[in-house]
Design a protein around this nucleic acid. Sequence first.
DNA 1: CACTTGTCCTGTCATGCCGTCAGCTTACCG
DNA 2: CGGTAAGCTGACGGCATGACAGGACAAGTG
Lengths: 215, 215
Amino acid sequence: MTGQVRTVDGRVAGRRGQATRQKLLDCLSEMLSSSPYRDVKVIDVARKAGTSPATFYQYFPDVEGAVLEIAEQMAAEGAGLTELLEGRSWAGKSGWQTAQELVDGFLEFWRKNDAILRVVDLGAAEGDKRFYKIRMKILNSVNNSLSDAIAELQSKGRVDKDVNPAAVAGSLVAMLAAVAAHQKGFSSWGVKQAELKPNLALLVHLGVTGKKPSR
Amino acid sequence: MTGQVRTVDGRVAGRRGQATRQKLLDCLSEMLSSSPYRDVKVIDVARKAGTSPATFYQYFPDVEGAVLEIAEQMAAEGAGLTELLEGRSWAGKSGWQTAQELVDGFLEFWRKNDAILRVVDLGAAEGDKRFYKIRMKILNSVNNSLSDAIAELQSKGRVDKDVNPAAVAGSLVAMLAAVAAHQKGFSSWGVKQAELKPNLALLVHLGVTGKKPSR
DNA sequence: CACTTGTCCTGTCATGCCGTCAGCTTACCG
DNA sequence: CGGTAAGCTGACGGCATGACAGGACAAGTG
């Protein structure tokens, strides 16, 4: 499916070329963590990678193009978040554990990729369909699983009929993403990391099942 | 408290100057809604305002400086969000109404200021303390009220002791902000605006009281 | 009315990044 | 060794940036 890696002018990239390309991506990734997105310049990325700006433009149309590439790579990993929910039960004590593990896995993923996720979030919010699609790819896996879980509970009569599974699941996923993005912010509200997680898990459990967890 | 408006080089701005300054802010505000933050250039803002780039630099150190100004103005309005919660009850039917009105007011505020809020969110996530502070100013009003409400219910024994009011309130507020920022995104999950609100209100009510609302 | 004062705006300029091209170097293959 | 395609860069026109000095303008003063 994935065609060969190509340069902007159509040539096929070989071993060396791919290495350079990857090095540029890595350096860009680093720069995104250390300086505002708005201030990331092609020339800085190139310098950091020990090459020239012209080389950058051989592999990417612009900074945004390279960012999209990084985001795609991350989204591919992010699809693995589905595992946090697949085949899990929401009943009784195991339900509480499911909620906890979901929160844990989600926050960890966000922490590991926070720089690129910030940019993706912005792009999506600004209405860029490409970023939007990537954001969906990551969130969809979790969202669909959650939505299914709620719908199933609903069909068993354990959840009110006027609940919209997709809306609740989407809101919960948005909450997880937002809290993850502003993890540091909570400290100024006097909330520590360790305290945050169980309370988030509680909210997730409440949202999915409508009931307090039994621990 | 608010000192006189000053130009970058220290002069005091008069009537005409303030008008120009405000016009630049308005034009910048518009540009933020229509093009990516990264691509907003001083020269475009100046052109749109019918003036020259040099004039812009007389009133603001750079684009970010002007954005901060807009954000401050918005934050001042945003402090009014407290009213959505002041003196409201979370018991019985009025509790359900409180939740609904909070969601309504919050989404409306976000919809009205989405462009600038996106930038504030990004700045805060990137660790810029000035943006961070502004974001706090807006969210704090809601967060504190929510947190107090939970703490009060907790003191009456209506909410479990191991709930951390600040953590839950913060998470709920983050959820509202995130959903508001990506309102359009929900349509691709097959969720319409009208359906979204009651489900959000449900989650808020569940989070605050730990119980389903009685309608 | 001329003159002064202080505000307000712009023309211009040095600087630095952007994005492109021609052309050089390097690697591979027969 | 010669040919070919990949890989890289110096250099360049173009544009945004940010600083300054000086011109335009309004208001007050004699």
